[in-house]
Amino acid sequence: MQITVNGEANELNEAEINLAKLLDIRQVESPEMVAVQLNGEFVEMKNYTSTYLKTGDDVEFLYFMGGGSR
């Protein structure tokens, strides 16, 4: 299955894969620090396991970034 993750083309061997598994494969250390966007739409964390990907999907991991003051 061919999907785009953070702007880069990715070939996945899995026939079926949900967002939770994708976060795992991509070794996202703390999923709480990532907001996920699928084809331009925000996906709630509680829906990661029920959201299955299909060929052509465009996934963005948006990292929470604080920093700045202290």
Binding site: E32, F64, G67
Partner: peptide, 24 residues
């Protein structure tokens, strides 16, 4: 895009994570 703040215990601060000065 970010909806709600992440849980406080998951958040690394500059103090914990470090930051390259010039990127500020």
């Amino acid at each position: 895009s970010f909806r709600t703040p992440p849980p406080p215990d998951a958040v690394p601060s500059c103090a914990q994570a470090g930051v390259l000065g010039a990127i500020a």
